[in-house]
């Protein structure tokens, strides 16, 4: 091989030509590197994600299923969970409506304030939930800017259910709107234009053409909304105050229980929320595959 016969006349100045090296073992080293990288990633996921998840499950079973069950099924815990589920339901309904309108406006309309709408819809993702609670406290709290008005109307927002609703709506605002806006942008307008040329009215176009195309995305956005609403802590703690039986949600229940070392209830509820989020995640994954297929089809 080294004494390679020169084939043809070199047309250009020669440099040290490439040579075949049959004894090359770089393949083996490459395989070793691959295994090492895989091990690092698995270790990382174990330390950050899988380990803590497993630890909670192990701790709950160490405390004893019976004790944990009776703590989680006690009235304060059930009330807190019911409160969280009510907040999930409200935020899903409101976001289904406002998210759809907002997304269509963002992607399909041109109007003054469109850029503002887009930026503000993104903002809750960048803001700490505690800060949101504080902002509403300053606006509608007992000493807030609007306190005189609310007092005159006899409305109680902070440390009451409306406060929880407002905080939850704030943090869930981006999910449905952004998801729908992204998909509307991706699928484009050609189908809607086709419907219009065939004489469909605006409502007919929306219900028969646009909506079926974004149905999966809407479901995805609403599931994210539900997960976020269920898990919100900072804003509902500040705005609700975690009053047992009145404004305590599942997350603030966990917080209080852990503070008071009532670990059976705290860890038990944490496991309940963790299990719900695993179910939500499974649904999200299912929709993600459907969405990928749907987008692939419309393109």
């Amino acid at each position: 091989m080294r004494a390679e016969r020169d084939v043809g006349a070199p047309a250009i100045a020669p440099v040290e030509a490439a040579k075949l090296d049959a004894r090359d073992t770089r393949g083996d080293r490459l395989a070793a590197g691959r295994v090492a990288l895989g091990a690092v990633v698995v270790l990382y996921l174990a330390v950050v994600l899988l380990g803590p998840m497993g630890a909670l499950v192990a701790e709950v079973s160490r405390i004893g299923i019976g004790e944990v069950l009776s703590a989680v099924l006690a009235p304060p815990a059930l009330e807190a969970l019911g409160m969280s589920i009510a907040l999930v339901a409200i935020s899903v309904v409101v976001n289904a409506f406002v998210g759809t309108i907002g997304a269509i406006a963002l992607v399909r309309h041109r109007f003054v304030g469109r850029g503002l709408l887009g930026a503000l819809a993104d903002l809750p993702l960048a803001v700490s939930p505690v800060m949101i609670g504080l902002a509403f406290l300053l606006l509608v709290g007992r000493e807030g800017v609007l306190a005189p008005v609310l007092e005159a109307l006899d409305w109680k927002i902070v440390y009451a259910f409306p406060g929880l609703v407002i905080g939850t709506l704030f943090v869930t605002l981006p999910y449905t709107m952004r998801e729908l806006a992204y998909v509307l942008e991706e699928i484009g307008t050609s189908e809607e234009e086709a419907a219009a040329t065939l004489g469909a009215s605006a409502w007919q176009t929306f219900w028969h053409v646009t909506f079926p195309n974004v149905r999966v995305a809407l479901g995805y956005g609403l599931l994210m909304t539900a997960a976020r609403a269920l898990g919100e802590f900072g804003a509902v703690l500040v705005l609700g105050g975690s009053i047992s039986g009145q404004t305590q949600t599942a997350t603030t229940f966990i917080h209080d229980a852990v503070e008071e070392r009532a670990l059976a209830g705290g860890y038990g509820m944490a496991l309940v929320l963790g299990a719900i989020s695993v179910v939500l995640l499974a649904l999200l994954e299912h929709l993600k595959h459907r969405r990928a297929r749907a987008l692939g089809r419309t393109k």
């Binding site: 803590p52 630890a55 909670l56 898990g231 705290g266 995640l281």
Partner: peptide, 28 residues
Amino acid sequence: LSALVDLPLAVPTLVAGVMIAVLYGPSS
């Protein structure tokens, strides 16, 4: 494993904190 990577999007952050405290806490 790929699906699990999305889990932190769905798990309440407070619960994430509890999980970490349980695994790495002083008495664990």
